[in-house]
Every structure is written in C-alpha cells, then in structure tokens.
C-alpha cells in the first residue's frame, strides 16, 4: 500500500516497470532505424507486419500451454499442415471454402485434443508429446504434399483473406487483433482463464479448490492447436503456397515472443498483451537482421540468446542468493 502513496520517483518507477516492455520496444525501433535507414520506411514496416500477424495469431492461443505449466512444440508443424490440408480440401476435393476451412480447423482442434489427453491422462511430459506431434505432423505434411511446394491457385475468396484490405488495412491484422483481444478477455475475465492460471501456479491447491486440472490443460492444448491452424490458413493465403518445412522454426519464434512478454514457462502467469509486444519485437529483430544483410544463420543464434536473457530476467524470483542481496537483508531486518 505504501508503494502507491509514494510521490514523484515512485510513480515514474512504477510506470517504467509496468511499461518496460514498451520502452524496450521503442528503444529497439530507435536502434534499428539508426542502424538501417530503410527500417522506418512504410514498405518495410508493412513487411514486418505480415510476419508479426502470423506470430501474433499463434501467440494468442499458444500462451495457454505455458500458463498451465506445459508447452506446445507442435504449433510450427501445425501451421504448415493446416495450409496443406486446406489446399487439398479446396483444390483437390473441391469443397466450398467455408466448410473446407472449418474442417481444417476441426483437424487442428483434434490434434490439440490428442496432445492434451496424452499429456494429462497419461502423465507424459508435454514437451515429449508435442515434440512427437511435431514430428508426425511434419511427416503427414510431407506425405500429403509429397514434399513439393504447392502453389495455391485456390478460390479467390481464400486468397483475399491474406492480401485483401478493409478500411485500408490488411485483413490479417484484423484477424490478429480480434484473436489477441479475445485471448486477453479469455485469460483475464473468464472462469477458464482463472483456472488456467491456478492450475499453472499450483496444481494441488487448484485441485483442492475444485478445479479440474486435466480438463483445463486439455482445453489449453486444444486452443493452442486451433490458433496455430488459423495462423496456417492465414499464412497459406498470404504466401499463396503450402510447403511442409515452411513454418519449421515458428515454435521458437512463438516461444521467444511469449517469453519476452513475461510469461513464465513454469506456469501460473502470463500476459497476452506482453506476448503481442514480444511478437512485434521478434518481427523487428528478424527484420533488422535481414536489413543489416546478416546471413540467415544469425536468426537462430539471436533468437536463442534472446530467449535465455528474457528467461533470466523473468525468473527474478528464483535467482541465486548473490543476485538479490538487498531483498534478503530487508527481509532479515523485518
């Protein structure tokens, strides 16, 4: 309580702490625009926006798996597979667009259901289940597409999802914004969101207070897979092609975005808005590397380092003793 009453410096500090991500983002933008003058051009920024859209859509659902204390590594393969399945349904089976996309979505939800059920009912570590899912989904994608890059000639309506504009802004942005807002409301203002946080923070106490951890976790994986499917559909219509290894590393980008956004991988806390800022940062970093003519090899290198730094910063509560001597001393005196 006394914190809120402090004047001047305290208030600024609080502001800095609350919006630190935003400040880091602006700092990053400033650095990038100094490094490369092309960065701030409208053309470049709209390019960044495309990739941010895909990662942002994935984040909006992916975030629930770390919040409940798990992780979903299958999202990257799911993105690729969704595009391929949608293409098969629309252009080979010749289904109308809406049922085809719905069917693709149902498939994605089923994959999530399998992930969730195997993780919770059989008590298998989630990263193993979803790693296996990543492998077999990739296999299915390669098998169905025969390893080829498929150009989607597709129905016009489908292609307009990706490239169409509404009120001057591309449609994927609307999709992303709607999904991020929906995810935020789901996390902060619904029973499911509360339960997800409770299960991730402390499964035993959540169980004792009447939350079913298994069904909460299963729903988290279903949502995660579902949003990955939506991202896959958007990406397929955006790039007008479907190729199995296309989205291979996306799970790392999504993990990076979510971790930058302050979501703990140990479960129990998370912020959708933070994940969105994280997604924008990942987009900027990747774009910056491209603009600086860095070879593609720097991409995984930088992503890995960013993940580690963000994790260490997030993990303040488990830092070793020598890194938080002041808190220790204060506690001792009190």
């Amino acid at each position: 309580m006394s914190d809120t009453k402090t004047v001047g410096g305290g208030g600024t500090k609080l502001l800095l702490a609350r919006f630190r991500l935003f400040f880091i983002l602006i700092l990053l933008m400033a650095v990038l625009s100094v490094v490369s003058p092309r960065f701030l051009s409208l053309e470049n920024l709209s390019n960044v926006l495309w990739s941010v859209c895909i990662i942002g859509i994935m984040c909006s659902g992916f975030i629930y798996s770390p919040i409940t204390g798990g992780i979903d590594l299958s999202v990257g393969s799911m993105v690729a597979l969704a595009g391929i399945i949608a293409n098969v349904l629309m252009n080979i089976v010749h289904m109308p667009m809406l049922p085809a996309l719905l069917l693709t979505l149902v498939f994605g939800l089923l994959v999530g259901l399998v992930n969730g059920v195997v993780t919770t009912k059989f008590r298998v570590p989630p990263f193993i289940v979803t790693m296996a899912a990543k492998t077999y989904l990739f296999g299915i994608a390669m098998f169905v597409s025969n390893g080829d890059t498929i150009t989607i000639m597709g129905p016009k309506d489908f292609l307009s999802i990706g490239v169409g504009k509404f009120l001057g802004l591309p449609i994927p942005i609307y999709i992303m914004v709607v999904m991020i807002i929906a995810s935020h409301i789901l996390l902060k203002h619904t029973v499911f969101g509360r339960r997800a946080i409770a299960v991730g923070a402390n499964e035993v106490s959540a169980k004792l207070s009447g939350v079913n951890p298994d069904s909460t976790r299963i729903l988290a994986y279903v949502i995660s897979s579902g949003t990955a499917t939506v991202a896959g559909i958007v990406m397929a219509s955006l790039t007008q092609q479907a190729y199995a290894p296309n989205a291979a590393g996306y799970e790392f980008d999504v993990i990076t975005a979510v971790v930058i956004g302050g979501t703990s991988l140990l479960g129990g806390s998370g912020s959708v808005a933070g994940a969105l800022i994280g997604a924008v940062m990942v987009g900027f970093i990747n774009n910056g590397l491209n603009l600086m003519n860095m070879p593609a090899s720097f991409h995984p290198l930088v992503t890995g380092i960013v993940i580690l730094i963000a994790l260490i910063l997030n993990q303040g509560f488990t830092l070793p003793a020598w890194m938080k001597p002041k808190k220790r001393a204060a506690g001792g005196q009190a």
């Binding site: 790392f252 993990i255 991988l265 070879p295 593609a296 090899s297 720097f298 991409h299 995984p300 290198l301 930088v302 992503t303 890995g304 380092i305 993940i307 580690l308 994790l311």
Partner: peptide, 16 residues
C-alpha cells in the same frame, strides 16, 4: 528451454 535455446545458438554458430 535452456537446451532449446542453446540448440538455436549452436545451429547459428554451425552456419557461421
């Protein structure tokens, strides 16, 4: 997550 991050870092180093 540590080993996943070092996987990314190493994959980059290998290319460099």
């Amino acid at each position: 997550i540590v080993t996943l991050a070092s996987r990314g870092i190493l994959a980059g180093i290998a290319l460099i």
